[in-house]
Design a protein around this nucleic acid. Structure first.
Lengths: 100, 100
DNA sequence: TTGTAACATATGAATAATGTAATATATGAG
DNA sequence: CTCATATATTACATTATTCATATGTTACAA
């Protein structure tokens, strides 16, 4: 893996490496949701949710469509779901806490 | 996924989300390496490599053992390898660049 | 047009991450 | 002990991330 490639992978990881963004991604696993619904389900101000959604859209993790006054978001880069599952799955036999 | 869990997952992701750290992890997939070898293989100053190694060790991603004057590092949290594979594998059918 | 709901953006402050350069520590040789 | 090699740590400047507040925009109804 050369540096450029590593940089790209790091960018994807950074796009996801935030608790609110992770929770948003988890919500969107079940299909598209509009901003208002996301705000209701997470306990986070609307502006922050919009900021994080915009950030992930910029980084090609999410995509959006407008319907009336609502904007619906879906996952564009499906690999982030695999990423989540890699980590969530392992949290049972978690080796980040204490491995022996 | 509650916030605390999301925070924990985000911490693991952040521990990995850096080009040099990713390259180090890739090197260590093939078994343990001492700091000097890592420095030689990557084009990065020794202090930076030590800093990143220390950071990953703090976050339980790596572990180390000393042998004489050398310190050998290995991967402690094997899940980061799976993470890497999730992302590297997908870079063929990459949806982060342009999906249609 | 005005009003309102839903969402986005701008700004700034606080905090965290990064890289550089210098210095410190540890081990072993002699 | 002194020296050399290997690695770690510190201090600092720079840049990036995050959050909150306030303001702007869009779509639509009346």
């Amino acid at each position: 893996m050369n540096y450029e490639m590593a940089q790209h992978v790091a960018d994807v990881l950074k796009a996801v490496a935030h608790p609110v963004r992770l929770q948003i991604i988890e919500l969107l696993e079940n299909g598209e949701q509009c901003v208002g619904d996301i705000v209701k389900k997470l306990d986070v101000p609307q502006a922050v949710v919009s900021q994080q959604l915009g950030l992930m859209k910029d980084k090609q993790v999410l995509q959006s469509r407008r319907q009336g006054t609502s904007v619906f978001y879906t996952i564009k880069n499906e690999n982030v779901i695999k990423l989540l599952h890699c980590l969530c799955h392992h949290c049972d036999n978690d080796s980040t806490q204490n491995s022996e």
